[in-house]
Every structure is written in C-alpha cells, then in structure tokens.
C-alpha cells in the first residue's frame, strides 16, 4: 500500500479549476517530485494534502486513512509535515524556539504543568529542547539556535524551516520549492540533505521545485501537472523525453527539462 494515495481530487475557486481530477501515489521511503509550469496548481495540491484547502471531490489517503475531513494540525500530528514556499518563520522568536514549535504536537503539558512544574513537565521541556537541537544539528545550524530567526541570512532561514518540519517527526515531508533563492552551494547541500532525511531518518519526501536540475538529480519518481491536470508521470529520464511535458514547458520556463 502506498503511503500517500491521492484519488481523483478536484478543486476550484469560484469557477476557476485549480486541480482537475488529479491522482497519484507515493510509496513509503520514496523521494518524489511534483512539477509543472507556474500556476499549474502545485502549491494548491500541497494545501489540499495538509488540510488548508478542502478538495471539492475525490479522496486523499495517508497511511490508509482519509484526510478529507481533517484539520491541518491533525494532519501534522498524523505524520505529514510541510515547509512553505514563502518563508513562514515565527520572526520574533529565536531559531530554537521556532524549531520547538514542531514538537508541540508530540508533547502534552498543559495549564497544570505550566503552573506547578511537576517532574513530568520538566522532563518534557528538556526533551523538546533536545529533539529541537538535534534537528538543528541535522540541518547544520545549531550554532545559530539563540539568534532571532529573522536575523539569519535567507538560506539559513530556509534551513530553520526544514528543521522545524523535521521536529514534528513526520513520516512524509512536503517541501514547497526548497531551493528557491538558494545559491549553488546551498542547493548542493540541499540535495545531500534530502538524501540524508530519507536514508538516515527514513522519511518519505515529496517536493515541488522549479529547479529542474535538482529535481532530476534527487527524484525517483516525478509527477507533472499543468492546469491542475496530470500530464505525465515516471522516472527522470522518461519525463525529460515526454513530448507532453516538453510542450507544457516550452517557451514558458527558462530552465525547462534540459
């Protein structure tokens, strides 16, 4: 059984069809990509998966359970995490505090714990800190943990987002254009990181990306959509030679499938 199974979902906003009868699946431990020209509806697919949008029809199965009626926080709790296309860090908080947000759904202390500080609460706080620091270490910015998130350079802020998503301890991680705005070295490290997340942590990955070089290097399976409609699916080579894909991209994208 696939880890994620999207079944014929459709979504429209006031007459404009954004996702059109789209189906695809992701196997456990895969690194998959969702690509398509600008405005093809990729981020909308992510928003459907994470519960921010409700598809008008179809079904989304994650680990065999439907996500159609679940709120975003329930979906995250259920093991799917995401990053945002435009950075959405908690700007006035420190890097560590940002990452600690990911641990919220894995911990339980409430009002009583806050007021009385019983042993369980202290242990939990230490645990939150430990895991968060490990996540920061994993993406390589543990040194910056006490700095305000907004003071970091752009590339490092991206890494805070990844660490934050990792801290939710997901089974499936959705990256929304993780390479946007990164320089050549940073992209290289991103590719390594994606591999490490899958190989060392055993997390399945789905990414949306415009950088075709990167997509072709990391993805094992690629789904291409245009106007919310699936036009091709397969391995990197297959996709690169698919006439439909070439047509969809031709003249629209600078770095089309090279």
């Amino acid at each position: 059984m696939a880890l994620l199974d999207i079944k014929k979902i459709s979504l429209s906003f006031g007459g404009l069809t954004v996702i059109d009868n789209l189906s695809f699946g992701i196997e456990e431990h895969a690194i998959a990509s969702l690509i398509g020209p600008n405005g093809a509806g990729k981020t909308s697919v992510f928003n459907c998966l994470t519960g921010f949008y409700r598809p008008d029809s179809g079904d989304i199965l994650f680990q065999g359970h439907s996500l159609m009626k679940k709120n975003p926080h329930k979906i995250t709790q259920g093991g799917m995490a995401r990053t945002f296309q435009n950075l959405r860090l908690f700007k006035n908080m420190t890097v560590l505090e940002n990452v600690m947000s990911g641990m919220h759904c894995r911990t339980t202390a409430g009002v009583w714990g806050a007021l009385v500080h019983p042993g369980s609460q202290k242990r939990e706080e230490r645990h939150i800190r430990d895991v968060s620091e490990k996540c920061l270490d994993f993406v390589g910015i543990l040194d910056a943990k006490d700095r305000p998130a907004s003071s970091l350079p752009y590339g490092d802020q991206r890494r805070v987002e990844w660490a934050r998503a990792l801290a939710t301890q997901p089974r499936l991680l959705l990256f929304d254009e993780p390479a946007a705005g990164l320089n050549y070295d940073e992209k290289d490290r991103l590719i390594q990181l994606i591999g490490r997340i899958r190989n060392e942590l055993g997390i399945t990955i789905l990414l949306i990306e415009h950088d075709m070089g990167l997509v072709m290097r990391v993805s094992e399976r690629i789904t291409v959509i245009d106007y919310g409609h699936k036009i091709a699916e397969g391995g990197a080579e297959e996709i690169q030679n698919n006439p439909k894909v070439i047509e969809a991209y031709l003249g629209k994208e600078e770095n089309g499938p090279a």
Partner: peptide, 8 residues
C-alpha cells in the same frame, strides 16, 4: 459574502 481564500 464569499468565502475568503487565503494564499499560502
């Protein structure tokens, strides 16, 4: 009124 669509 219309439902607001927030952009991510």
């Amino acid at each position: 009124g219309r439902t607001e669509i927030e952009r991510m």
